[in-house]
Design a binder for these strands. Structure first.
Ligand SMILES: Nc1ncnc2c1ncn2[C@@H]1O[C@H](COP(=O)(O)OP(=O)(O)OP(=O)(O)O)[C@@H](O)[C@H]1O
Length: 843
DNA sequence: GAGGGTATCTTTTTT
DNA sequence: AGATACCCTC
């Protein structure tokens, strides 16, 4: 596996935020330079307009101060934005640096950059600012950091960092006497009394959720304090305040802060506000239905008086595609926009993306939603491939189906791999798909995968790098202080913290003090470790102006990091190669034009966790894209697979929580409408999740949808292997294999999902299983534990067992748990123990 | 304080 | 299944 940095994919198309013309000509890192033709003005403006239908044209040419384009999927909203930008530059001769276009994902931003570069003809034109909200804010904050009490080298905290920080904050809060009584019941766990007395991670996580909600709503600490109601409300406000303080002390911001603090910066500094308003006179926002109030406030602050001459503000959106309400997104923003800015409204009604069958089921699906703004959508495309609905026995079968269809279509239809996208609701579903594609040699790429940068060893190294750039980064410091182990354990740390308290909790300073002999620890044991750590950091900081990759190399050498990895069997065997990949990523980052500083690298890594590309996949034929439906928003593909269309998975149901059916349906709608020509819908009767099997029914979203012909499997080369009625093969009677959990009987699987609608149907059309799936996975390779667990099925209380550690013991009790059978065993030496039977052996 | 072994929980979605 | 939090022993 090879890590490929996202060169050309990063919307860092944002010159310095200063409003000088000169700097906006400098092309920022990651932006592929465009090939522009050299036509002259009039010719190009005609072709620019030619590619638009009348309402689109109106939206591009419109010069009202504020414009809302409300339109369904694939109607050309993004096209309106890109053409409008080109029109501004080429026809109205607006200096590109005055244009600011905002998107939600990095991928959307880079696609927009690409499209704009193809459209703009003026070869002299510089790049307009096209970026995500968060990148924009990071740039602005770096520029004006001192005005908000930060240094420009501030860190950006991801959710793990946030959680660590908040744990510390809450910990301190609950140990301080005033708050003890208030906080303990709500912040510490008392469930079942079997938990430790300490802080409950989940509780803190919940609390973090509340803070995030504030941030999404655009509520800063001050207004949180003002509006706090009740004990719980005040507690949250207090935690919020302390958390923000801790962030500032660490010279760090979190994602929410990027938006919030930028807004505050503008509000509190009229001079800066004017500078930025002067600079960006034309603001365009894509996917506006997914802005949250914080972003709305930011935009308002950035726009100022929108009626000012020569200023325009355009937003485009589709309420049916609002899928981020969990992040505080509010469709009401569209209405508010219309009101607040007295915006003109333009609707687009023609869909240019999807073939009729696709548009048809998408429309039928979304029509069931109750809360919608009125819209129409039609298409005049011609004949098309039928939609394929595919029931599968299990997730593995589904993955095989996807892989096989992709390979088949590549051959039959001469499609490229990059014409395909595979969608799923949850990231966990990607693994089996990925495995299968890899096994079949299909080049692919998981978009937005949590992968590389989440590995422990990579996080450690990044924390080191962060700490070098930002010495105040407390969380990074805590993470690496004892990695590799230097003999600085919990005891020492507690003492260091205590020593830091009078110094504003500045751990770094305390360490320095201890190393220089100004401060003393009770025990000398940790001293060598502290000394070497302080020396290491000092030495590396001296070399900060060297290329980042060299710095990393020095870090690796001086900490013997590789040895450290190799000595620990618990770490994955690939850890060392991951480190090598990180070095490679840095090298490749350095080779890109633009800012190659370590700080720039770190910012990219947090703001845009680039795709992990598998199998050197970027040849001419491209790669198959795997992604969650959420990250598919705004994209389009020739052929789309929507997988996992199961009840409680696609309308996703969380334990003990209500389903937000309308939002889930919108999500499904987004998934369907990404497809241009071919749409495959699949679901599995059983699926493994967290190591457990779950049974699945076809998604209610599919029930009653017309026009879905269930197609036969691809003709196979071997004529003996064709059509076969659904049937389950007799299970192999391999003693070593745990019986598969029994799933729905054949009739149930065949049950018409479309009971109500007999016109168009899954009905008479046979649902045909492929040979492969009828005899599903075959016997799974027997796993040791399976075998042992099975042998232990017959264990009863009173039996004697052995355990690798505790020796021989007597089984007292057995209890069935989802994870296995839990035994209570009496061992002569150690007493009663609860142990899963898979760790036991009959004696 | 380190390291090995076990019990438990997880992420739904993203910047 | 995989990561992590916790416990125990050295
Ligand atoms: N007037 C047009 N002529 C030809 N093709 C068009 C026209 N308008 C849009 N398209 C094409 O239709 C497809 C969808 O356009 P676009 O992505 O702008 O739609 P959208 O409204 O932003 O979609 P969504 O909301 O689903 O993201 C694109 O491939 C675009 O090139």
């Amino acid at each position: 596996m090879k890590l490929v940095t996202t060169s050309g994919k990063v919307p860092a198309n944002l010159p310095s935020v200063e409003a000088t013309a000169a700097d906006s000509f400098r092309q920022s890192k990651g932006v592929a330079s465009s090939v522009r033709s050299h036509q002259t003005g009039p010719a190009m403006s005609r072709s620019l307009i030619d590619g638009l239908n009348p309402p689109q044209r109106e939206a591009v040419l419109d010069d009202s101060p504020a414009l809302l384009v409300l339109a369904g999927a694939g109607s050309g909203k993004t096209r309106v934005i890109t053409h409008r930008i080109a029109h501004l530059i080429d026809v109205l001769h607006v200096p590109p640096f005055q244009i600011l276009a905002l998107t939600f994902t990095n991928r959307a931003a880079s696609e927009m950059i690409e499209r704009v570069e193809k459209l703009v003809l003026d070869p002299q034109a510089s790049d307009p600012s096209i970026s995500t909200f968060h990148s924009l804010c990071a740039r602005i904050l770096r520029k004006y950091a001192p005005a908000v009490g930060l240094s420009p080298s501030f860190s950006i905290y991801d959710s793990d960092d946030q959680l660590s920080l908040l744990m510390g904050v809450v910990h301190e809060l609950s140990s301080s006497t005033d708050y003890e009584r208030k906080t303990s019941p709500s912040l510490t766990s008392s469930e079942g009394g079997n938990k430790r007395a300490g802080l409950d991670r989940n509780k803190v996580r919940e609390l973090l959720g509340e803070l995030e909600a504030c941030k999404n709503a655009g509520i800063n600490v001050q207004s949180a304090r003002e509006r706090a109601r009740g004990a719980q409300g005040e507690l949250v406000a207090e935690v919020y305040a302390r958390y923000s303080e801790a962030l500032t002390q660490a010279n760090a911001v979190d994602f929410g802060d990027l938006i919030l603090r930028t807004t505050d910066l503008l509000r509190e500094n009229p001079r800066i506000q004017h500078q930025l308003r002067d600079r960006w006179r034309h603001i365009l926002v894509d996917e506006f239905q997914d802005t949250n109030p914080a972003q709305f406030k930011l935009l308002s602050a950035l726009v100022g008086d929108h009626t000012e001459r020569g200023r325009t503000f355009v937003v485009v959106g589709d309420d049916d595609q609002s899928i981020y309400s969990w992040r505080g997104a509010d469709v009401a923003n569209m209405l508010e926009f219309q009101e607040k800015f007295a915006a003109k409204l333009i609707k687009l009604e023609q869909n240019y993306r999807s073939d009729p069958p696709i548009l048809d089921i998408a429309a039928k699906l979304i029509a069931r939603n109750q809360y919608r703004l009125p819209k129409t959508l039609w298409s005049d495309r011609g004949e098309a491939a039928p939609i394929v609905a595919k029931p599968c026995l299990d997730d593995r079968g589904e993955a095989r189906f996807v892989s096989r269809e992709i390979r088949r279509l590549c051959l039959d239809q001469q499609l490229n791999y990059s014409d395909f996208a595979v969608f799923y609701r949850t990231n966990a579903q990607s693994r089996i798909l990925e495995e299968q594609l890899r096994a079949d040699g299909v080049p692919h790429c998981i978009i937005g995968s949590v992968g590389f940068y989440d590995r422990a060893e990579i996080k450690d190294l990044l924390a080191y790098l962060r700490l070098l750039v930002n010495p105040s980064d407390r969380i990074a410091l805590l993470r690496v202080l004892n990695v590799p182990t230097r003999g600085i354990g919990a005891k020492t740390l507690a003492e260091l913290e205590a020593l830091s308290r009078p110094r504003e909790g500045n751990l770094a300073q305390t360490l320095q003090g201890v190393a220089s002999g100004a401060l003393h620890l009770r025990s000398k044991r940790a001293l060598p470790g502290i000394n070497s750590f302080v020396a290491l950091m000092a030495h590396l900081r001296d070399r900060l102006d060297e290329p980042p990759s060299q710095l990393l190399q020095a870090l690796l050498d001086e900490t013997n990091f590789i040895d450290h990895l190799e000595n620990r069997q618990t770490r994955s065997k690939d850890a060392v190669s991951h480190v090598a990949e990180l070095v490679g990523a840095l090298l490749s980052f350095e080779s890109e034009p633009g800012d190659s500083s370590l700080a720039a690298f770190l910012e990219r890594v947090t703001l845009d966790r680039g795709p992990a590309v598998d199998d050197e996949g970027q040849q001419a034929t491209g790669v198959v894209n795997l992604m969650t439906i959420h990250s598919a928003k705004g994209l389009e593909f020739d052929t789309v697979f929507v997988t996992g269309l199961e009840d409680e998975l696609l309308p996703y149901k969380r334990r003990e929580e209500e389903v937000d059916t309308e939002e889930e349906r919108r999500l499904c709608y987004v998934a369907f409408t990404r497809a241009k020509h071919r749409l495959f819908l699949s679901w599995a009767s059983r699926r493994q999740l967290h190591g457990l099997w779950h049974r699945g029914e076809v998604s209610p979203f599919l029930v009653g949808l017309p026009g879905i012909g269930v197609s036969a499997p691809a003709p196979r080369p071997d004529p003996q292997q064709h059509r076969r009625p659904p049937a389950f093969a007799p299970r192999a009677t391999d003693e070593t294999v745990e019986p598969l959990p029994d799933y729905e009987s054949e009739t149930q699987l065949r049950r018409e999902p479309l009971a109500e609608d007999s016109q168009t149907h899954f009905g008479e059309t046979h649902i045909v299983y492929d040979e492969e799936e009828v005899y599903p996975t075959g016997p799974r390779p027997a796993k040791r534990n399976d075998k042992r667990e099975r042998a232990n099925k017959e264990l009863t209380p009173g039996d004697h067992v052995t355990h690798s550690r505790y020796g021989v013991g007597l089984v007292l009790e057995l209890e069935d748990r989802p994870e296995g059978v839990m035994a209570t065993v009496d061992f002569p030496m150690t007493g009663h123990k609860s142990i899963y039977t898979r760790f036991l052996r009959r004696y």
